[in-house]
Every structure is written in C-alpha cells, then in structure tokens.
C-alpha cells in the first residue's frame, strides 16, 4: 500500500485531532437546522449517517487493519433483517430491534470471520463476497418468513419509552435523526476508543507489515478475525438503523453490489483517515439521490464514478487534504 512512516502513525492521533472531530459534530448536530435551506431533507441526512456508519465500520477493517472485505453488505443486511424481523414477529420495542439486529449481524460475522480470517489479499475479498451472498439467497428464497424478493414489510419503528418520558421517533423525522445520531455517536466513540487503544495500534502494525507483526509475536490471524468481527457489529448496527429508517427490509441490502458501494464510499472519502468514509458516504448518497432522480442511466454514472475515483482520485477526498496538510 503506501509507505506510512512510524512518525506519522504515532503522531496522527495527538496532533490537532479535535479540530476535524469538532467540525463533524457541529455539522451533524445542526443538520436539521440548515438542511432545508440547501434543499435537503431529514430522511436523507439520516440515510447519510447510516451509510457513513457502515462505511466507517468497513474502514475499521479496510483502512486500519489493511484487510479488504467485499462482503460487508451481508452483515449490514443481517442487521436490517434482524431489526425488521424483531419488530415484525417478536416485540414492538425499537431498542430491542436495534439490539437483535446488531447481534444477528455481529454474531454471524464473528462465526464466519473465523473461517475467513486466514485468507489474504484478493482471496480474502473473494471469500467474503461469496459468503456474503449466502444471506442474500436466504432472504430471497425464504418467502414466508422474510418476504422474499419483495422484502419484509409490515413493521414500523416505535416511540421510545423511558419511564414516563416518551420520545416519538415514529412520526417525528427530526427526533429520529437525533436518535440515529446518538447511536452513531456511541458507535463512533467506541471505534475511536478501540483504535486509540493498544489493540488498535496493533491492528495498524498488522496493516503496515504483517510479516514484521508476526515476528514481533502478534497473532495476526486472531487480530484480523477480531477486527473483522468488531467491524461486523458496527455494520449490523448501521443496518438495524436502516431498517428503522425505512420501516422496510430490502433483500438488495444484502446484495454484493451494496458491498461495492460501501467500499467506494470508504475509498472516495479517504480510507486512511478516520472521518473519510463519512465524507465519502455523504457525497455518494447525495449524488445517488440526485442522479437517480435526473436520469434513467444512473447505473452508468455510478459506474463511471467508481472508475474515475480509482483512476484519478485513489487517495480520496480527505486523503488529498491530509497530504497537503502534512509536508
């Protein structure tokens, strides 16, 4: 990949780290205020947060462990179905749906990760794609339970009850946005904490040079497996939020084409920066929303975006900024 020196690896977290984070949080917290002015709407902002979360979850693996998963839609989609099925068949508690969604995607990712983690390079990517498609076919063919091709309907997110306090995220889009933002914040906080911990430093060592890490006595396979599992829990959390956002579970949310979109969000934003994937997700979601309303040939436009990013913009939006900032 690139040749990051020890100094940049070690310096990065301390040097002016609060500034980008502060900008991001101010923008996200105030989004419902300024969005209508620029022609946006709150559901789109929630969508950006959800895709940003899954792209950052993927980047935990791709950017900070140096392992390329092309099957993350599976764990995202399991989160979607986990939450949807919980609300449909088990309970009408939004928080329980969120929890079960996270657990379904995360546990499946943990189990499959044990099989996948010993592969490397493109072969790793290939196995993740193929394993990911299993769940697409299950959701697609188990008509009576998952709704098959048409997707799972007949559920909706419910208001939150905290004792006497009732937060109506069901009908109020802005409140739901803040609910998504809260879950997003918890996940991102956990991710940042993990990356700053010795465990996270070890993952970066694995990314930089697997052989050297192994010589230093680091159990590389186990760290990749752990990183994969953690990433799947966060991806599933994003998926569960996605189900709550749309009140609908779509089998396409399990399809490998979504996996590709998640990867392009991370790469387009800059996979070496913490906030890059969020920026990439915002650009991608807004472009997709705009293009698909403009032309029937939106697939070509998205495909062209992939090609252009790869050919001319491989470092991503924030990657370019970072490089300019540090001499």
């Amino acid at each position: 990949m690139s040749t990051t020196t020890i100094e940049t690896v070690l310096k990065a977290p301390t040097e002016r780290r609060w500034l980008p984070a502060a900008i991001v949080w101010v923008v996200l917290l105030s989004a419902p205020l300024w969005l209508p002015l620029v022609g946006g709407y709150t559901a789109l902002a929630s969508h950006v947060l959800v895709m940003g979360l899954v792209a950052m979850a993927l980047n935990f693996l791709l950017g900070f462990t140096g392992v390329m998963s092309f099957g993350h839609a599976a764990y995202f989609g399991l989160g979607v179905y986990g939450a949807g099925l919980t609300l449909r068949y088990i309970s009408n508690s939004t928080l329980l749906a969120l929890l079960f969604g996270i657990l379904l995607g995360g546990l499946v990712g943990t189990v499959l990760g044990a099989l996948i983690a010993r592969r490397r390079g493109v072969y790793f990517a290939m196995v993740t794609i193929a394993f990911g498609q299993i769940f697409y076919y299950i959701a697609y063919s188990w008509n009576s339970f998952t709704g098959g091709y048409d997707g799972l309907r007949g559920f909706s997110r419910q208001p939150l009850h905290f004792g006497p306090l009732v937060i109506d995220i069901q009908n109020n889009g802005t409140l739901f946005y803040y609910f998504v933002l809260a879950v997003f914040a918890i996940c991102i906080g956990l991710m940042a904490f993990l990356l700053a911990s010795p465990f996270g430093r070890t993952l970066i060592a694995v990314r930089e040079n697997q052989r050297r890490a192994r010589f230093l006595g680091i159990a590389v396979d186990r760290h990749i497996w752990l990183s994969f599992s953690i990433s799947c829990y966060f991806a599933a959390a994003a998926g569960a939020l996605y189900a709550l956002l749309n009140n609908f579970a779509d089998p396409m949310s399990l399809h490998y084409s979504l996996s590709g979109e998640i990867v392009i969000m991370a790469v387009m934003g800059g996979m070496r920066s913490f906030w890059g994937p969020l920026v990439g997700a915002a650009v991608f979601v807004i472009l997709q929303d705009y293009i698909s309303s403009m032309t029937e040939n939106w697939m070509s436009c998205i495909g062209l975006l992939f090609v252009l990013v790869v050919m001319f913009f491989p470092r991503g939006l924030l990657g370019v900024l970072q490089r300019r900032g540090s001499p």
Binding site: L62, M68, F70, G121, G260, V267, S300, I302, V310, M311
Partner: peptide, 17 residues
C-alpha cells in the same frame, strides 16, 4: 488490490447499463 476490485465493479455497472 482494492482498486482493481472497485474498477471492475464500476465497469460491470457501465457495461450492464
């Protein structure tokens, strides 16, 4: 390798469309 994957992925979209 992530770039070659994304490239053929984009090509698939373009060719299909």
């Amino acid at each position: 390798p992530v770039y070659s994957l994304l490239l053929t992925f984009g090509l698939a979209f373009i060719l299909q469309d």
